[in-house]
């Protein structure tokens, strides 16, 4: 009994310790972004800014055009999320609940495609998009994110738990397939839609490699690409870099925290719902 009583303290203590270790870089990123130019290079490095300032943020948005990059990232991430949800949810539902010839064969083929690493597909994809004239366009960034096997798989597995009788009841009530999808299926899939939406948004927001390959003009850059370019120009300016990092990380952090309740529910329900 004594051993069991002390367990929560040890476990919670260890978790708090690990959380602090994980959060420290985030904390220091914010702290440095508020420091005076060159302050972070002092030895030993200061933990907190001696004279906090928003100067780095003003420079970031004023001189480096970060506002434009932020907007680019936001528009692309929102579009990628919307497109990916549209295609993945409709396809996942169709694979789970609609009867059509070759359904299982096509699904198995899709699953087999999961083993191909994204990097392997990049060069053929680049050449395809080049032929289509989509290089250096936003559409070129979006096309590969529109549907992905993992998303379809995730939705399909969740949609399998939607009772078929419920869909049949709607059919008997006179609802067409689109009505059934919109009025009955989408509300039932809400947790997995939120989960998938967060995945899609994060993937697009944080994506560095593909936008780097596809986008050529500076003013079309997304935040990760722009910050990488910025770091080459301002390699000594750690405070400005950290302000850029804060602008990149914080929105998705808040998005994740805000939707965490649905997100976790989605992951759990997908695994335990019978």
């Amino acid at each position: 009994m004594k051993g069991r009583a002390s367990n929560p303290l040890v476990v919670n203590g260890a978790l708090i310790g690990l959380a602090l270790v994980a959060l420290f870089p985030l904390f220091w990123m914010i702290s440095v972004s508020l420091m005076q130019p060159g302050e972070a290079a002092d030895v030993p490095p200061p933990l907190l800014p001696s004279d906090p300032t928003f100067e780095n943020y003003l420079r970031l948005f004023g001189q480096t055009g970060m506002g434009r990059y932020f907007l680019n990232s936001l528009v692309l991430a929102v579009s990628a999320t919307a497109l990916s949800l549209f295609f993945n949810v409709t396809a996942g539902y169709a694979f789970a609940k609609l009867r059509f010839k070759g359904r299982d064969t096509i699904f198995r083929l899709l699953l087999a495609a999961l083993v191909i690493p994204a990097q392997v597909a990049m060069i053929p994809l680049f050449l395809m998009l080049k032929e289509m004239g989509l290089i250096n366009t936003y559409l070129g960034v979006l096309v590969p994110t529109m549907a992905n096997v993992f998303g379809i798989f995730l939705v399909r597995q969740y949609a399998l738990s939607v009772p078929t009788e419920m869909l049949e009841a709607a059919r008997l009530d006179g609802a067409g397939e689109i009505r059934i999808f919109a009025s009955i299926v989408l509300p039932a899939l809400r947790p997995i839609i939120v989960t998938l939406g967060i995945f899609a948004f994060l993937a697009s927001w944080n994506d560095f490699l593909w936008p780097l390959i596809v986008l050529i003009d500076d003013d079309m850059y997304t935040l990760p690409v722009a910050i990488a370019a910025l770091s080459r120009e301002h390699v000594q300016d750690a405070e400005l870099m950290m302000a850029g990092a804060v602008v990149t990380v914080l929105p998705v952090l808040f998005l994740f925290l805000g939707l965490q309740r649905f997100y976790l529910r989605g992951l759990l329900l997908g695994s335990v719902k019978g």
Binding site: P163, E165, E168, A169, A170, L172, S183, P187
Partner: peptide, 13 residues
Amino acid sequence: VAMVFQSYALYPH
């Protein structure tokens, strides 16, 4: 026709 299912099949939302 109208049908009543074993699982009731009510719309949960």
